[in-house]
């Protein structure tokens, strides 16, 4: 008699959350990375406010995208290495649901701090204020699918010893639509348009990714860990 699925799901969340809390320094790394890169842009482009303001929204998007790739590498690798993936697989619980829990936690720990940080970066670079709410909303809609694609890539490479560049090579082309529609939505608002279309498209992509991504992820894990 195995335990109910909800119990297993929240048990996994609780376990990983405790683990993250014990290593909370690492969790902050993507945020620090984002801040550093944001500082580099004015240094490279020059302090001229008008020039920075033009690229502000796009730069914020690229920074968030790159920063959210940083912690992907360990998403499943630790579970493969310490055998807890095996425990999940023999437990008779649907692996896709457990994987969805892991992706959710990854999103909460990596994407949410970046979303909170993004208006600060964008405003510091001189993006007009009217774009802020759209930027945050678009990020909220786009980051789940970025996390899902990242998780799929992490699952495919989980049994490899190292996968840093390969992971980015796999994820970045897949993240192109999210980047285009997300940055496009902000751009539309900045030139005075209505961002509904790109936002709806982002939402649609996000729903599809969240619905099917965990299944793909689970089969990739089964494959790479066998």
């Amino acid at each position: 008699m195995s335990s109910p699925l909800g119990d297993a799901f929240f048990g996994l969340l609780a376990r990983d959350a405790i683990g993250l809390w014990r290593r909370r320094g690492e969790v902050l790394n993507p945020v620090l990375f984002a801040l550093m890169v944001a500082t580099l842009f004015p240094l490279a482009l020059g302090p001229e406010a008008a020039r920075l303001a033009r690229v502000a929204s796009g730069v914020s998007w690229v920074i968030v995208l790159l920063a959210s790739l940083l912690s992907l590498d360990v998403l499943f690798r630790s579970d493969v290495e310490d055998g807890s993936l095996d425990a999940m697989r023999v437990s008779q619980q649907p692996l896709a649901v457990l994987v969805a829990g892991k992706i959710l936690l990854h999103w909460l720990a990596t994407a949410v701090p970046l979303i909170v940080l993004s208006p600060i970066i964008a405003l510091a670079l001189g993006m007009p204020r009217i774009g802020v709410s759209t930027l945050v909303l678009a990020l909220l809609l786009a980051t789940p699918q970025i996390s899902v694609f990242g998780a799929c890539a992490a699952a495919l490479t989980a049994s490899l010893h190292r996968s840093g560049i390969l992971l980015s090579l796999i994820v970045l082309p897949l993240a192109v639509p999210a980047l285009i529609f997300g940055a496009g939505a902000v751009e539309t608002v900045l030139v005075g348009g209505n961002p509904a279309q790109p936002l709806f498209l982002l939402a649609a992509g996000g729903i599809l990714a969240v619905a099917f991504g965990p299944l793909v992820c689970a089969s990739a894990l089964r494959m790479s860990a066998s």
Partner: peptide, 16 residues
């Protein structure tokens, strides 16, 4: 039917 499996790796997290 579930079963219990113990491999070379313990399946336990070192941080916990």
């Amino acid at each position: 039917q579930a079963l219990a499996f113990l491999g070379h790796a313990s399946g336990l997290k070192l941080d916990l």
